[in-house]
Design a protein around this nucleic acid. Structure first.
Lengths: 217, 217, 217, 217
DNA sequence: CATGAATGAGAGTTCATTCAT
DNA sequence: AATGAATGAACTCTCATTCAT
């Protein structure tokens, strides 16, 4: 019998390390953060840390796994909606809303660090792709449904729409990472307009048919 | 012996170094690239390199300056168009077209590296913002014009539309950096549809007014 | 609860640890073996191990003591023989025979590790000398007897003959440690020939006095 | 053109490092010696050292190569002799004579360290075998010649005689490493006696034929 | 008695930068 | 101007040993 140290304790320690690492990676960068700093931030000795993670890369991999788990849980909630376009907009709103939360800052700034890392590190790349696979097919499915219903432009490749929609989000995350002052809610409204076909009309006049702006009639 | 090295020679040497650095940063990452590697790639000694750049960061800064100069030249060309929406679409097409060029790969992969770097390095951050300032106001101007004409949704904050449109581009760059196989042209068509209000309609019914995608009638 | 753990239990545990350590030291080297590995091999916790031995060096010291005890038992058996040369040969045969046993491999490979260690570690050195003292005087005694009888070259320093004979054995052990394929029995025959004055004759002519090798008559 | 730093300078630096390493390895052991200590002993910075050797193992490998080169030069000198037995004895005398030189102490103590290392490290093992290949075939050749002439016992496997003769030397080296006081010259005389069939005679009497001891008649 | 989580000094190695030539 | 040898602080990771449970 091992003396205490439950499964839970073990998980807590790992979380403690990951949380510390998120903070440092996010604020100082992945490569600029030393293991010593993570230890200090986690209030733990080096030896202890290495008992739970065998390398810096390992910590990052575990972070991905943790967030993939959390996201896949969340995924199933946001889905059911009136129609494809509404689903898309609602999905976006959910996702952008989290960007507004100051508490999420470390998390999405970390993401940017890891995007760069994924370019160069096959293991991180693989995990990044796994995370993408969580969202990509869901959005692609919505698009296909929308195209069947005639609500979404049928000329567009449904496989690639997630790349554009996801890309839009990534781009906003990036800018929010640079500048906490970016008004994500307002950005989200622009995104929603784009998705709802409400951003522009090629020919302005026509008038009566649909009025631009918030006015309904 | 010539009394001084010509301005031109100096510029050529700097370019030679920057080109080498772009290749290494792009392929191996900014932090993973050593000065030795840059020297080897540039076929130059350490001493020579340090004569032209006083640090790794300095090379990156010079890269930004170089690309800012190039882009501001290009800027003035793409502008004049029939109307705001057409201008937007044309701008996008120009910009995405470059992503398709395999020769540009090192360049945009470098960009991703620097985005992460800008998050933690004030000097890089400043330069990144300068680059953004090149495009942001231009797009904002187009949006305002579009809103005046009633062609673009007047509810949207024109200051933030560049963030979304630029963000979309960044997101595609990121994904193209990860996977060279991404079909950027097809993505661009999706972007154009979004910008042209041609992506979706909230109400599906075929009113005949606007033709949607492949749908007949 | 029993008031105290039996002497026997204690000895068993120590043997269990030493056996595990022998295997690891032998296969991976003394310095390359970690306490963790010994624990794993001994199927025992770190805490338990440290209850029986207070350091890595301590384990090695105990190993020496154990083998010194075993050898001194064995010593008394091989001794009585017809004459000094026969005794020497018989002693060698006994000792080399053990090298042929694959089960002894870990043991003699460990020895090589410890020879190197004895060079720099005074405590190990002391133990190694103790082990030598087991054999040295015995062989020296045989030599002196042989010299008295006129069977062994009287010019040779009897104190040093054990060094040469023992050295020969060590050298074979070393080579067998490197290459399990070495034919120790054949080597032993060479050793016996050397000891019996049967290796060479300075003058080749077949004087008939002593038969050489395969030569008949 | 590189600025100074001839081939010779480069070789001197490498020697400087190897010499320092020999001293430390020999006196404190291979594993107990840190790179810092080698640097200090070589009066050189860590960075400088790593310019010449990319790892601790690399230093050892270079040492082997250096000594293999030196030995193979020496090899060709000692060879020609009156007959096989004389050649053997002369070879031994040459080799043991070097052990008596106090200046050689670091070198042969290092050897012992590496013997242990070779057991466990394939690269070192390979080099050790290479070194053995320098001597082994030479001695084997002498033995075969001796057997042809009837001067050496024809029953003995000539391939294995080098193992025994070399082993004898290794065993003496080992003991000299432990105790600088060992009288190597006297040991060498014992070795010579063994090789010359002058160590013992199975049957003591016979008398007149050959008298034991230094006396000629 | 036993456990194994925790410690932290220290190992080998790297690399941006300097500077004598 | 150019060279590349030299520097040494800093890095990631290891491991013998301790001790609360």
């Amino acid at each position: 019998m091992s003396p205490k140290v439950s499964e839970q304790h073990l998980e807590e320690r790992r979380d403690q390390i990951m949380d510390a690492a998120v903070r440092r990676f996010s604020r100082h960068g992945f490569h600029q953060t030393t293991m010593d700093e993570i230890c200090a931030e986690a209030e733990m000795s080096k030896g202890a840390l290495y008992r739970y993670f065998s390398s810096k890369e390992d910590i990052v991999a575990a972070m991905y796994e943790r967030s993939i788990n959390q996201e896949s849980v969340m995924m199933n909630e946001v889905l059911e909606q009136d129609g494809p376009v509404a689903a898309l907009v609602s999905l976006s709103e959910g996702v952008y809303a989290k960007l507004s939360d100051p508490a999420a800052r470390d998390g999405y700034r970390l993401a940017v660090q890891l995007w760069a890392e994924a370019m160069t590190n096959p293991r991180i790349y693989e995990l990044q792709m796994q995370e993408f696979e969580l969202w990509g097919p869901v959005i692609a499915g919505i698009i296909e449904e929308g195209q069947r219903r005639g609500e979404i432009n049928g000329d567009l490749n449904p496989e690639l729409v997630p790349r554009v929609i996801g890309g839009m989000f990534m781009g906003i995350v990036l800018q929010k990472s640079w500048d906490a002052g970016v008004d994500v809610d307002a950005c989200c409204r622009i995104v929603s307009a784009l998705l709802a076909g409400d951003f522009s009309r090629a020919v302005p006049i026509g008038l009566g048919t649909r009025k631009r702006g918030s006015a309904k009639t």
